[in-house]
Amino acid sequence: MAGKSALSDVVQKNGREILSAWVQRQQTDLALRNNLLQPGELQQQASDFLTAFGPAIERGGTDSTTGEAWSPVRDLLSTISRSRARQGFTPAETATFVFSLKRILFDALQREVKDSTQLADEMWKASVVLDDLGLYTTETYQKGREEIINRQQQELMELSTPVVQLWAGVLALPLIGTLDSARTQVVMESLLQSIVDTGSSIAIIDITGVPVVDTLVAQHLLKTVAAARLMGADCIISGIRPQIAQTIVHLGVEISDVMTKATLADAFAVALTRVGLAIVRKG
């Protein structure tokens, strides 16, 4: 098929010119963002892409970019777009990497292909391929972003549920951030395990760092308290801010059977009394 080879011929024959024109174009496009990339990184990525692109057209054709022959190109693109997602590029800027090649490729085709029908045909093919690849870039960019978000969520979850022992038999659980079902599960598990490990009989759940307490969060708190009670440990909820106290009452949340204290210090004093200890001033 003459049409098929023309595009790849053009790419392979004019590789050097296309590369330099393309890199230059991207540098103008990304003028403001150049500081995000290492020097030479763009050049390297563009040259890698072109090296893979030419053979891919030749072997895989332009009808679809999902075949075996295109997989080096796709792998390369997904690496590039993932690294761009980490570097802080926007999706549009990431997709521009592929789309900016269009103009350069069209120019090269115009120079090489003289027959106007064939030229239109080639341009259409190039356009379809590049659109496909551009979309693929955006897709992997999105996936890369989602992976980052998931990982951060996981880290946040692990970071934000420490159970600390304030005294022999007294545990504290300073909660920071919103409580959702998944976090409640983690909180509950780590609290109950600590109760078993330390043989504690009282646990203080401090919600100073919880921004909003709605009915759902309150329900999660009550569940945690109920589970601890089943294990034989009493819970005190502390760190209730004035607004939260108001919200709880306005929402009609029934937490009267749980002991609540305004500050962690108050709760600690109660806990010490429960385990039969007192703090006295020296001298």
Binding site: M188, L192, S201, A226, A227, R229, L230, M231, G232, A233
Partner: peptide
């Protein structure tokens, strides 16, 4: 001596066993 996993299950089932008193050991 209720296991943590058992406590969580009971709470999720909505059985807080309010009339029962518990102890660790």
């Amino acid at each position: 001596g209720m296991q943590p996993s058992v406590a969580i299950t009971l709470v999720e089932l909505g059985l807080a066993l309010t009339g029962v008193r518990s102890a660790l050991n």
